[in-house]
Design a protein around this nucleic acid. Structure first.
Length: 521
RNA sequence: GGCGGCGUAGCUCAGCGGUAGAGCAGGGGAAUCAUAAUCCCUUGGUCGGCGGUUCAAAUCCGUCCGCCGCUACCA
């Protein structure tokens, strides 16, 4: 049995997205969580860490079985189709995952069964009966508050189907035994769970008492068989959560990837925080496996002020947004618009406004004006630093602080605040260029002009390097325009000075402006 | 019902005991290297209402009003 403490940091970083449930097509919410996790993965790679980044799909359960039946397709073929759509979405969003786990893969089944056996061997699983209101017609259980009572006292499901109280044999996990240890975990490791509002909710949930958890079903077949009792399949969460281990090669003791355990961060949507912050650590404690270092929940997106739902018909496919606005602008917007952890609204006006003001005007135009001044006045050759003024030094100091600043923000999952820090430097560059007016120095002091441009170039190199995790494609272009070699783009390379005299390619625009149809004319 | 959060400039929010802040939007000016982009200045708020503690309260306490979240087997 392990202690509840998490292991100290190493040079490895293991970050995960949830595995997405394949009962529907990927939407902007999935993309959001994945982009956030991707930023963390990319940031840590640039920071010299050995990173493993996992995403994938959750493919078991009665709903999937039914969805496949409704579609008239064999269940595995059905999940194959949706899983590949999720993979396509991840690729379209430039998610730099190292592995894509599917819960229908043999390696996962083996891992889930091994985890079950480990928990069982420690005495935390017992056979009991799951009781509840069951609708034969719908073939599923309903909770008390979902039901309506008719005048004659009988109850009906939301679907209108009659329900009856039934008992189904089920294996239970002794969740109740872990209440104190979970509370100790939250208290001793406040960084385990965030944002803080969510942590408080989970703490009060656990405090009010935990019941044992039903972790198997006999009412459907589409799942992983329980070891030594094939009448049962594992109930979804025991199966699904194990993915974080199965992709590492668990339970093979010689699996190289197991060195990445425990996970550094599980990024999840706020709807599944409980499963990650309560059930998952309890399962791991029960199996004697070290706990992940952090679980962090992101919020929901509304669309033009409305809740996203299939019935409203406003579900946004991130690939459509990318087709209209470009990949990096969309990635930027998702992480920039609202403090990471909170809810936010996706609407065209604020999207276009952010892209125009912050990307096109603030950053794109800064790069363009700086690089074209160098192209035109320095023959496209990177100038040398002259004697640095206080103004020069202040700007460079701000820029060189960025990696360290962002490191702190990323650790706290403050992705939005991280971007704000970079933008402070970008705004400072625009103020600096106006103050120094290199276009005027051109006529009075050509040496000073060259030095000013070099200071701006150096600030831009820091900005572009730090922004790579957020906008990998566009920042790669910018770094190329700045003459930074591909192997000199990590944080360590920032402390080296670029050689003057290198030839810079011709500058090209990075971010096009957008005009809303109603604003045209 | 219980527990918790929020309510600050037109908008999105930061501040959380010591003379009200940022970004965007609005107004004025400068500049013209640049994607007509940029820079500077500026209008604007009895910090949800009412009481209390304090020399001093967005900031602490109480209460009221209005939103929102959680309150287990939903993927």
């Amino acid at each position: 049995m392990t202690s509840i403490t998490t292991t100290p940091g190493t040079n490895r970083y293991y970050v995960t997205t949830p595995i997405y449930y394949v009962n529907g097509a990927p939407h902007i919410g999935h993309a959001y969580t994945s982009v956030a996790a991707d930023v963390l993965a990319r940031f840590n790679r640039l920071d010299g860490k050995d990173v493993f980044f996992l995403t994938g799909t959750d493919e078991h359960g009665q709903k999937v079985e039914q969805a496949a039946q409704n579609a008239g397709v064999e269940t595995q073929a059905f999940t194959d189709g949706i899983a590949s759509d999720f993979r396509d979405m991840a690729d379209a969003m430039d998610i730099s995952y190292d592995d894509f786990i599917r819960t229908t893969e043999p390696r996962h089944k083996k891992a889930a069964q091994a985890l079950w056996e480990a928990v069982s061997a420690n005495g935390h699983i017992y056979l009991g009966a799951y009781e509840g209101w069951y609708a034969l017609r719908d073939e599923c259980f309903y909770s008390e508050d979902e039901l309506t009572t008719r005048p004659d006292g009988s109850r009906i499901a939301p679907s209108g189907a009659p329900v009856e109280w039934v008992r189904e044999p089920s294996y239970f996990f002794r969740l109740s035994a872990f209440q104190d240890r979970l509370l100790a975990l939250y208290e001793q490791h406040p960084e385990f769970l965030g944002p803080s509002g969510r942590r408080n909710e989970i703490v009060s949930f656990v405090r009010q008492g935990l019941k044992d958890l039903s972790i198997s079903r006999t009412s459907f077949r589409w799942g992983i068989p329980v070891p030594n009792d094939p009448d049962h399949v594992m109930y979804v969460w025991f199966d699904a959560l194990t993915n974080y281990l199965s992709a590492l090669g668990y339970p093979d003791p010689g699996a190289e990837r197991m060195a990445f355990w425990p996970a550094s961060a599980h990024i999840v949507g706020k709807d599944i925080i409980r499963f990650h912050a309560v059930f998952w650590p309890a399962f791991l404690m029960a199996a004697g496996i070290a706990l992940p270092e952090a679980v962090y929940a992101n919020g929901w997106w509304t669309i033009e002020g409305e809740k996203m739902s299939k019935s409203v018909g406003n579900v946004v496919d991130p690939r459509d947004l990318v087709a209209t606005y470009g990949l990096d602008p969309v990635r930027f917007f998702l992480l920039r618009e609202v403090p990471f952890g909170g809810d936010s609204d996706l609407n065209r006006r604020s999207l276009v406004n952010r892209l125009n003001v912050e990307l096109a005007n603030d950053l794109g135009n800064l790069a363009q004006r700086t690089l074209s001044l160098i192209a035109r006045n320095c023959e496209g050759i990177l100038p040398a630093f002259g004697t640095l003024s206080d103004d020069d030094r202040a700007l460079l100091a701000g820029a060189s602080l960025l990696p360290e600043l962002l490191r702190g923000q990323m650790k706290r999952f403050a992705l939005t605040d991280g971007l704000e820090e970079v933008w402070k430097v970008i705004r400072a560059c625009n103020a600096y260029i106006d103050r120094q007016a290199p276009w005027a120095l051109k006529k009075t002091d050509i040496v000073r002009m060259a030095s000013v441009l070099r200071v701006l170039h150096e600030a831009l190199r820091h900005i572009a390097t730090t922004l790579q995790p957020f906008m990998p494609g566009t920042m790669a272009k910018l770094l190329t325009q700045l003459g930074v070699a591909e192997e000199k783009r990590d944080f360590a390379a920032l402390s080296e000075t670029l050689e003057e005299g290198i030839v810079l390619p011709a500058p090209q625009g990075l971010f096009p402006r957008h005009v809303l149809p109603e604003d045209a004319s």
